[in-house]
Nucleic acid binder design. Structure first.
Lengths: 114, 114
DNA sequence: CCACATACCTATTATTGATAGGTATTAGAG
DNA sequence: CTCTAATACCTATCAATAATAGGTATGTGG
């Protein structure tokens, strides 16, 4: 069927995660719920998406992990590094450019001649 | 270097092409320029992106090709099918949902508790 | 005791945009 | 007449990564 379900999502998980972590430290499971809630149900990223993304971001030094105990259970909190803040800025502006470009085409007035 | 250049672009070429073809028939080379111009330089999709996309869309019956001669040279014009119009509507609303979701997170007020 | 929520993880698949080529024709510059 | 640039089409390959579908372990409530 080639049902394309992943439309428009490339780079979005990274942007969402960095954006949420910019406000406060969070652990993976918390991020999964936060993404669903804060996006008003627009996104529902599974753990299988979020955890690998976190590991990739950590490897790129965009976020930093700190294990912390909570009620006898270990949670891995992630915080943005300064490199991560820079990256978030880049992603945000790229996102704005893409949004603007798409809007320009969708609402475009005239089109070039044949 | 793992320089990720393709951020936020998944599905965008399809959306742009369908959107432009919804207004008027166009041929591949023309689309390449139109995407650059109409998006205000936000996108600059190479021919190696546009042509395969057109072939894929044609195979899915979302667009239809008509060869036409222009000054002794053959151009392949593409037009939306009704299926293509439906698809464009779906993509547009998906795009709106994604945009809204990202905006909600980027401008989000409060975040869930730990 | 069992089910569920919490909290973490990985392997695999599939899609597809980007890159880097290639062909052929026509127009214009020198 | 030649050479370049623009037009107009094409394909093969790569690389990135979101989605799916699993898996482990602990704590809580009925």
């Amino acid at each position: 069927m080639t049902k394309t379900k992943a439309t428009f999502m490339s780079g979005v998980p990274e942007l969402l995660i960095l954006s949420l972590l910019a406000r406060e430290e969070m652990y993976g499971y918390q991020l999964v719920r936060a993404i669903r809630v804060v996006s008003n149900e627009a996104f529902s990223l599974a753990e299988g998406v979020v955890y690998p993304a976190l590991h990739a971001l950590e490897e790129k030094r965009l976020i930093k992990a700190k294990e912390r105990e909570h009620e006898g259970r270990i949670r891995i909190y992630y915080a943005l590094t300064s490199k991560g803040k820079t990256r978030l800025g880049e992603l945000t502006s790229t996102w704005a450019r893409v949004c603007g470009g798409v809007a320009a085409v969708l609402n475009g007035e005239g089109v070039a001649h044949g």
